[in-house]
Amino acid sequence: MSTLEIKDLHVSVDTPEGAKAILKGVDLTIASGQTHAIMGPNGSGKSTLAYSLAGHPKYLVTDGSVTLDGADVLAMTVDERARAGLFLAMQYPVEVPGVTMANFLRTAKTAIDGQAPPLRAWVKEVGQAMDRLRFDREFQERSINEGFSGGEKKRHEILQMELLKPAIAILDETDSGLDVDALRIVSEGVNRVKEATGLGVMLITHYTRILRYIHPDFVHVFVDGRVAERGGPELAERLEAEGYDRFVNA
């Protein structure tokens, strides 16, 4: 049982015109087994929240706290956060030519677990996870994300999540750019991991489409760097009907 607790989080980025505040006091608590949808218009700071939690050096935390089971996440390096149990499925997964997916997955698993996985069991586990995500196993010999389609990159993120078994996963617009079939495969993957490991999920999305496949327990409407409204799944249905206008123009 894990809890990610975000309190009064303020984050800014450097711009040519000086530091610009993006997050302006975010409060959010996610526990194992829960799914929180973070919805909001473009530019509201949703991705900044995701990258800040993962520790991307571009984002500067100016106030607030983030803890995972009481441990200070903001004091951790990027890799320490991952080893503590946080996972960020990125909106734009990075290509790393020359590092094979197989080498990458094994290296990451070894780092997360603190010891190398038993080889035969690992090969089998990776292969089966790839099969479930409709991934050709031959992708393992390809460089990380190089030449992958948009859908393959997203499935690769979910594959990593399934294999690394984090406590809390942040899915940053995992649904963007996916066709209906890919969206279903990815969503099934997320639900499967939730079922198997009790994963807590922060699901960042612009659209309600993915919520038909991954059912949120809580919906947070994100506007101008903070949560403007909270509710249950019914809030997503309202957004579907009304859009974000009433928040943006409020």
């Binding site: 890799d79 990075v94 790393v96 590092v99 080498n103 290296t107 780092a111 690394l164």
Partner: peptide, 18 residues
């Protein structure tokens, strides 16, 4: 690239080496 590898738990020195 370094961020991506580190975000999967791989320590910085190892990520640079990779």
């Amino acid at each position: 690239q370094l961020f991506y590898l580190q975000a999967r738990g791989i320590p910085e020195v190892e990520a640079r080496s990779l």
